[in-house]
Simulated scan of single mutants.
Amino acid sequence: MFSVADVDVTLGISGNRDLLLAALVYLLHNAFKFTHAHTEVSLGAYAEGDHVLLDVEDNCGGLPPGTTTSIFQPLVQVGDNRSGLGLGLSIARRNVEADGGC
């Protein structure tokens, strides 16, 4: 199941559409890949100060302790499912940072 929270219609961002869309697709793909069967992946967007934050939430059970920084490095994989190359989260992060995000 996939749900998208209501978004304030005045919320907007400017940036490289292709880079930011690719980053979002990588995050969503990762969430769908690791969430437990018959659970929900959700997407939300909201403003915090001068930033727009996107939340992608899944039900994977959480990350192993100490891996939250390393998962954004190229070729790093921490789950049992190693069907990908370990590049998606790294590319997503670089795309956002290349467009001035954090």
Results as ranks from 00 to 15, higher is better:
4 V>W: 04
98 A>L: 00
54 L>V: 08
59 N>Q: 10
15 G>Y: 01
65 P>D: 15
1 M>G: 14
82 R>C: 08
37 A>C: 05
28 L>M: 01
35 T>R: 07
71 I>T: 10
23 A>L: 01
65 P>T: 10
92 A>P: 12
3 S>T: 14
20 L>T: 02
59 N>W: 04
56 V>E: 03
73 Q>K: 14
31 A>V: 07
16 N>R: 02
85 L>H: 14
67 T>L: 11
10 T>G: 10
85 L>A: 15
64 P>Q: 03
8 D>M: 00
35 T>G: 07
45 A>E: 03
62 G>F: 06
87 L>V: 14
62 G>H: 05
13 I>Q: 02
52 V>C: 10
12 G>K: 10
7 V>G: 04
85 L>T: 15
48 E>L: 03
64 P>Y: 01
11 L>M: 03
38 H>R: 14
50 D>W: 00
40 E>V: 13
34 F>R: 00
51 H>F: 07
33 K>D: 10
1 M>S: 15
65 P>R: 10
71 I>K: 11
67 T>A: 12
97 E>N: 11
97 E>P: 06
36 H>Q: 14
28 L>H: 00
71 I>F: 08
13 I>S: 04
92 A>K: 05
38 H>S: 14
69 T>G: 11
90 S>A: 15
78 V>F: 08
42 S>G: 12
94 R>T: 11
72 F>V: 05
43 L>T: 04
98 A>C: 00
56 V>K: 01
56 V>N: 04
39 T>W: 05
27 L>C: 14
74 P>Q: 08
22 A>L: 09
29 H>A: 12
87 L>I: 12
98 A>S: 02
87 L>D: 09
46 Y>G: 09
51 H>W: 08
35 T>M: 03
70 S>W: 03
99 D>N: 03
17 R>Q: 13
64 P>K: 03
14 S>R: 02
18 D>I: 07
77 Q>R: 15
6 D>W: 00
53 L>T: 13
52 V>Q: 03
100 G>V: 02
22 A>Y: 01
75 L>P: 02
78 V>H: 08
34 F>I: 00
67 T>N: 12
20 L>C: 05
54 L>A: 01
4 V>M: 15
82 R>N: 09
59 N>S: 13
66 G>E: 12
90 S>H: 15
81 N>P: 03
46 Y>Q: 10
43 L>W: 02
73 Q>F: 06
95 N>E: 03
39 T>M: 08
12 G>A: 13
3 S>F: 04
52 V>D: 06
85 L>N: 13
50 D>V: 00
2 F>K: 09
